[in-house]
Design a protein around this nucleic acid. Structure first.
Lengths: 250, 250
DNA sequence: AGCTCCAAGTTGTACGGACAACTGTTGTAC
DNA sequence: GTACAACAGTTGTCCGTACAACTTGGAGCT
């Protein structure tokens, strides 16, 4: 096993599995930071770093003066990677993800695309449309716009490649931050045909802008899901915020 | 002004306003941690704590070896309070929130309610149904179940109280963590009448379970929004995760 | 029993130092 | 010029200490 993973991650992982295994049931109090530090042979700061991760995931509460308490409810997941990649998410649930590329078009960036990808209006981009399936049944239409450099890599992939993002990672393209907007909109005729539903049917829409570690946009995507197939979940707290609500349109 | 706010918050706030004011435009590099520490007269650890908050809000990237970069895109907000309270959110956007309580019913907890509120099945709870408006127009139906202790406080509020949560805070009821699930469902006849839309119309649904600092559930709510009135936004990154995707139903 | 008050336990904030890992730039060699 | 190597700059990880702020439970009193 590689020892390249930092200490606090190991501690966090340990605590996660301990909680998942029921060692600390819902409502139970975790050991004190000092106790954990002794037990793992690390400093209190390192333990706090681990616990901060659990807190951000909504696994435990924490407040001054009292021990941490395990929050009941949904078992959390390694949410980022699974949110970003449809394939990874599906596999982690034991579902069989599939994908069929419908179109790959070189194009000139519209104003909206230029804005989100931070390129000049009219710059070369690639538009990719795909149908995503779970166990063979179509559940989502994905329309992604890539900047030129990345789009060229995507265009070279086989039509039936299951996971584009995993392929891109192999080529050194990293996704580290993403901003999502979730709302509802009616299926247009294209959506309807690809998903096999009547046009006008309400779909759950997720728009996503992903950036790499340097802050450079690497994709701008609009995913439309058939209702009933997925739900989005978020945890937030006064300590770690992330989610917002917005008026329609932008 | 109270000096009770911790140092790192002041630093974070300062940086937030500096970014909002355009001092560091989209893509600009922030000063190094050491530089900021000198500038504010605090230790590097304190600066890092402030920057971690900005990172969690999706304002800046960060990676080893390079300076932090300001992420372009949506100006972030203090999201937790605004997500938890419809009234606060609306006011922060300059809209006029309204609310009309349709029903307050003492009841016995169903299995689902008992589960989410962590009380015994059949325990006393209060079900509250309200219509929420923006500038007079109805946009959302809210069905909240409270445990007995809190429900009694809510039942005592006037029917036209705008913000229940702010009233509850005055009574010492604190909300610090919330878990949200977002999906789509068709309006039932009640929704349709309250919102003034045809039955069957697709609504954006947000289910929410909120807990207090001790981890005790304080509300279980299901909010149904007219399409086009709101969108939910999330930022996540490899460092700070929060959002997930789920299969339909639960 | 119920109440107040105190002490121990626990987390939050802040400081300091040290080294590891990585990036971007500069300069050198070919 | 181009490729490689060295270097300074920067963030990530980890340690240790100290004190402040808060919660909890128990002792003692009424």
């Amino acid at each position: 096993m590689s020892s390249k993973s930092p200490l606090y991650r190991k501690v966090a992982g340990d605590l996660r599995t301990a909680i998942a295994a029921g060692e600390y049931g819902s409502g139970a109090r975790l050991p004190a930071e000092d106790e954990l530090a002794r037990r793992y042979g690390v400093s209190r700061g390192t333990v706090r770093q681990a616990l901060a991760a659990l807190r951000a995931d909504g696994l435990v509460t924490s407040r001054r003066g009292a021990r941490r308490v395990v929050l009941g409810g949904a078992a959390r997941l390694q949410s980022f990677a699974e949110l970003r990649s449809f394939s990874r998410w599906a596999r982690s649930l034991g579902e069989e993800p599939g994908g069929r590329t419908v179109a790959v078009d070189p194009a000139r960036a519209t104003e909206e695309e230029a804005h989100h990808l931070q390129v000049a209006e009219g710059a070369r981009v690639f538009r990719v449309r795909r149908v995503r399936t779970l166990s063979g049944a179509p559940v989502m239409v994905e329309r992604t716009t890539y900047p030129e450099r990345i789009g060229e890599l995507v265009a070279a992939l086989p039509v039936d490649a299951v996971s584009h993002s995993e392929q891109l990672e192999l080529h050194g393209v990293l996704f580290t931050d993403a901003h999502h907007t979730i709302d509802v909109l009616p299926a247009d005729p294209d959506d309807a045909e690809l998903l096999g539903c009547p046009p006008g049917r309400a779909l759950l829409r997720e728009r996503r802008r992903s950036t790499d570690p340097a802050g450079t946009p690497v994709e701008w995507s609009e995913d439309r899901y058939l209702p009933g197939t997925v739900a989005f979940t978020v945890h937030n707290s006064t300590a770690t915020s992330a989610l917002g609500r917005r008026l329609g349109e932008d």
